[in-house]
């Protein structure tokens, strides 16, 4: 465990908690893509099935349980408790265009053709693109609440920090996982445009709004 990995995990945790608290405190999920949140719930579910088969550490197990728990809680808030505030009209990304190709790819390109490994690979590929419905929604409405941008920033930062972690692990441990690295690079690239807007607008106290 290096500092980049740890801060990456904490950044991921911060993102998840920020989103959950935003919805809970405002009693509203306006501007949040329920589809992205369902995809993230799928990501955590398919990746952390090894909770049932392998024990790594107390840290590992607790974080996995927290991520899964918060993810399902978020989906519950959006689609049940605060359903009336869910902006479904703007959440129109066709998720089958992500899930089907990602499912196919995880069967074709994986480390081992076994159920658990294919599901893990699926989760890695799906996570790389799971934010697209949310970004699509923002591009459609042309704006995002500031708290939503903080969520996106920490979510993007997490994978960027993992990239540095993988460079570190390659040099100091000789460890590398090509699937995770390539997907992680793709995932981070998808946030670049957003990072630019976050730094040039949100951090200067302006609301994130896109030109019409």
């Amino acid at each position: 465990m290096n500092i980049f990995r740890l801060t990456g995990d904490l950044s991921h945790l911060a993102a998840i908690i920020i989103l959950l608290l935003k919805i809970w405190k405002s009693r509203s999920c306006a501007g949040i893509s329920g589809k992205s949140q369902i995809l993230f719930a799928m990501v955590f579910t398919t990746r952390y099935l090894d909770l049932l088969t392998a024990y790594i550490s107390l840290y590992n197990t607790s974080m996995k349980i927290i991520y899964i728990g918060c993810s399902y809680a978020t989906v519950y808030l959006i689609y049940a408790k605060f359903k009336a505030t869910y902006d479904g009209n703007h959440d129109t990304f066709r998720v089958e265009f992500l899930v089907v190709p990602v499912g196919g790819l995880s069967f074709l390109v994986n480390h081992d053709f076994s159920p658990l490994e294919i599901l893990w690979t699926f989760s890695i590929y799906l996570e790389a693109v799971a934010i697209l419905p949310q970004l699509f929604m923002i591009s459609k409405t042309g704006e995002a609440e500031t708290i939503t941008t903080h969520y996106l920033f920490f979510l993007g930062l997490y994978r960027a920090l993992y990239l540095i972690n993988w460079v570190w692990r390659f040099y100091f441990e000789g460890f590398f996982d090509m699937i995770a690295i390539v997907a992680g690079v793709v995932q981070t690239i998808l946030y670049c445009d957003f990072f630019y807007l976050y730094v040039t607008k949100v951090l200067k106290g302006k609301k994130l709004s896109l030109p019409a």
Partner: peptide, 10 residues
Amino acid sequence: ERVSSGKDEL
């Protein structure tokens, strides 16, 4: 090679 159960990263 790092396969199947026991991924240490989240």
